Every structure is written in C-alpha cells, then in structure tokens.
Amino acid sequence: MIVFVRFNSSHGFPVEVDSDTSIFQLKEVVAKRQGVPADQLRVIFAGKELRNDWTVQNCDLDQQSIVHIVQRPWRKGQEMNATGGDDPRNAAGGCEREPQSLTRVDLSSSVLPGDSVGLAVILHTDSRKDSPPAGSPAGRSIYNSFYVYCKGPCQRVQPGKLRVQCSTCRQATLTLTQGPSCWDDVLIPNRMSGECQSPHCPGTSAEFFFKCGAHPTSDKETSVALHLIATNSRNITCITCTDVRSPVLVFQCNSRHVICLDCFHLYCVTRLNDRQFVHDPQLGYSLPCVAGCPNSLIKELHHFRILGEEQYNRYQQYGAEECVLQMGGVLCPRPGCGAGLLPEPDQRKVTCEGGNGLGCGFAFCRECKEAYHEGECSAVFEASGTTTQAYRVDERAAEQARWEAASKETIKKTTKPCPRCHVPVEKNGGCMHMKCPQPQCRLEWCWNCGCEWNRVCMGDHWFDV
C-alpha cells in the first residue's frame, strides 16, 4: 500500500509500505531520502505521535493516508518512550493509558441525555464484534464512529474520518494533550489543546475536521460531520418502519427517538411537499423529531443533505422563500418566477423588478396576487391545505425507538455506581478489583462488596467470576 509523507509540512511524497511495516522502518526510509538522522524524526498522525514499535496496521493507516513527519531533536526523557523501550505506560498493571487514536474515538455516547454525564468515556458498548469485510486488514473493525456528507465523488452519507490540525499553522502536526470525549470537544473551536510539532510553531489549540472515509482524499478535501447519525450498535428499532437498520439518525429530543435514513428521507420529502418545515429565527429551515417532541429541531442543517441534490435544492429554495415571508415580504405569483420581494408595508401595487435578471417585471396586487387592478379585489380565496398535519407515529413504536432507553438498560445490566462519587462504572470481565475512572475520584473498590478495596476482598473473592 501507499502512504503519503509530508516532511516538515512540505509537499508530500509517496512511500510504499506493508501492513506489518513498523513506524521506525518508515522513519528509516524517510531519513534516507531526506539525509537526516532517523532518531530525530517524529511521525504524527490523527493528533498522535506514533511509536517506533507500532506497525502501519496498528495505527489504522489506510491506503493513501497522509502522515506528517517532522525533524525535531529529542528532548530529555522522550527518546526512550518513542523507541518502544522502557515506557512506564506499558508496564503490566499500570494505570496510565495511551491517548486514544482519533481513528478509534467514539462519540456516540454523547447523544445520551444530559443526566448521563461521564458515560462518553466510561461506558463502552460490546456491539462492535462484526466481522471485518472481505479485503480489510485482519482485526480491523467495521464499526463506524462518525458519518459525514461527502460532496465529492460519493454525493451521499458516508463513514467519516476525524482529523485534527494546529489552529495556528493549519498543519496536521499537532499532538493532542488528551483525546475528545464528546461532540462539544470536536465542534467547539479551541476547546481542546495540544502541542504543535512543526518547527518554530508555538500553536497549542486544536482544530478538528472530518474527511470522507470511503475514498482517498487530499489535504484540502473536508466534509461536514453529521453528528446525529450513528451506527445502530444498540439495535434500536426505527420509529417509523420498526426495522432494525444501521446507520440511524438520533433526534435530540428527551427520548432520543431513532429513525433509519430511508424513513428520514421520506419524512423530509413529505414535509417538504406540504411546505411544513419549521422556520426558526436562529436555526433556519428545519424539522423536529418525527414524533413531534418539543425542543427537538435539527440544529445542523447539513443533515438535510440526505435528501439528495434535487430535493436539497428545493429545500434551500423553500427556506429562502419562507425567510422572505417571515420578513413581511411577498413572492411573485407569476408561474416560473417566484422571486422574493420586500415592498413597503402599505404598498398595494407590487412590481417584480426586472433588474439584474432576477425579476420578471410582472405587476400584481398584494392582496389577491392577481395582475394589478384598481378598486376592490374580486375574490380572495383562503389558501387550502395549509394546516399542519401531524406525522403519524405509532405510540408503541415510539416507545421502542428510544436510544436513551437502550442506554439505561445497558447501564443497569453492566454497571454499578462507584461507592464514593456514584458514577456508573462498567465491568466487562476481569477481577473484582475496580478503579473509578473519574479523575477527581480514582477510588479503588470491590465490585462484589461495593466497598473500598481491602485485604478481605483480596483474599476471599479477588478473582471470582
């Protein structure tokens, strides 16, 4: 396979590697080409510095992935760790964990309700045991953590790749202090920090972006993250068709209702045909949960890209028209025109101005929308079919299609509260000796007794199943 190397943020060049090629071997190839010592090179990928003893497969490097290699003399205490030698983080029983690669970060837990604080980093599902597709590297999971809308060759929703760059020099040479644990960490600028490894760059702020994971991409090709779309790892039924499908869209209502993408497309087109989208002054033209839940309008309007190009163009047109109407304007009634106009409040005669090729020149009556006339309008008909009709959803289907309910059931079956801080902690095999993952707590306690870890627990039921 081919990976592209950008040395000291210059133009990239291809390097041929195998899945079992080590990072140090990659350094040696680059060092020979650039005429520099291999031990002064640092390989940066997806916000993480890659260790010498890791392989291309370990690092989730795919065909035509772009890695950054910078030349920086080692500072005291760094060289041993980078070589894969006596790194205290690798000691058996050590409590410190390697910062998780962005290629394996899962933010789907952050669609849980606000009262489930902490689960994004504490609760991990076991539903990723799908067998890898044919042709994928051994052991590589097909679980997708992110979804994007690819405006490039795909023109559809695709699995996405999370990447990070330095907000100062805009190069992907920043190593994160810690990985993101929720969508806010990724979507809110300057929320996460790190250290830029580019020479002479003092940058410390992280800037995240997404790429389409279905095809090789260049540095400049980015895609918009659709953070309401998630892999259906909890096997929730769709609120409309009641099938279990994946991926799904999880509405931001209190129940976190789930809808499959085909039904979401149908829901949007139906509402669009009836012009029953909601115009929100802050958000724009949007839709609420299909069950009509309060405070559930979709905030990231790129989710409506699921409509496809033709329907999305209609959505944008109707949204612009609705904006004009909300501002007190009118639409030209001549067939084939429909231009938005903003006449004076007491102006009865409205002319669709033909300047700049935008208007048709038609003069019409503001009251009856017919060709302009003197005197009273002959008839004014009330528009028919403008009443909002509820999208029919079966109550039982709505009850079963809740992301929140599956989460709470998982928590109930696989977790116990920490005796000190009461945060839910998952036990997935292993011994009875637990350690609270909350940095402010870190209590060592017994899963069996529910009390602080002691010699009695150690001698009596340390390794009970």
Rank of each mutant, 00 (worst) to 15 (best):
N448F: 08
F208P: 02
N235E: 09
L358I: 15
S131H: 09
E79W: 10
A120T: 10
T173S: 08
I229W: 02
Y315W: 09
E16Y: 09
W74K: 10
Q100P: 11
N190Q: 09
L176A: 03
L41T: 00
T240I: 15
V393L: 10
T237R: 14
I411H: 10
Q389P: 15
A390K: 12
A225Q: 05
S10Y: 14
C441L: 00
N90P: 13
Q440R: 09
C260A: 01
G47Y: 03
S22D: 04
G292C: 05
P99V: 11
T222K: 11
H373M: 02
V324M: 08
K299T: 11
R271V: 05
K32M: 13
V43Q: 01
E353M: 08
Q311V: 05
V423M: 15
G430F: 14
V70P: 00
D184I: 03
K27T: 03
L266N: 15
V67G: 01
D39W: 05
E96Q: 12
A92L: 14
Y372F: 10
L342C: 08
C253S: 00
L226V: 05
F208S: 02
E426C: 07
R256Y: 05
C201T: 01
G354V: 07
S141L: 11
W462M: 08
G357I: 13
N232A: 00
D460I: 12
A405H: 10
E395F: 10
T240M: 15
L261A: 03
P159E: 06
R72V: 13
N356I: 12
A379Q: 09
N90T: 12
T204E: 09
V148P: 02
A31M: 02
P281D: 12
S167I: 06
M434F: 04
P294G: 13
E344D: 15
T168F: 07
R51I: 05
G357F: 15
C196T: 01
G292R: 06
E310Y: 11
P247V: 06
S136C: 10
G114F: 08
Y147H: 07
S136P: 11
N58K: 13
C59P: 01
L226S: 00
R234C: 06
C421E: 02
V250P: 01
P343Y: 06
S233H: 12
M434G: 03
V350Y: 04
G85I: 12
R366K: 14
L342P: 04
I188R: 08
P417I: 07
H124R: 10
Q347D: 12
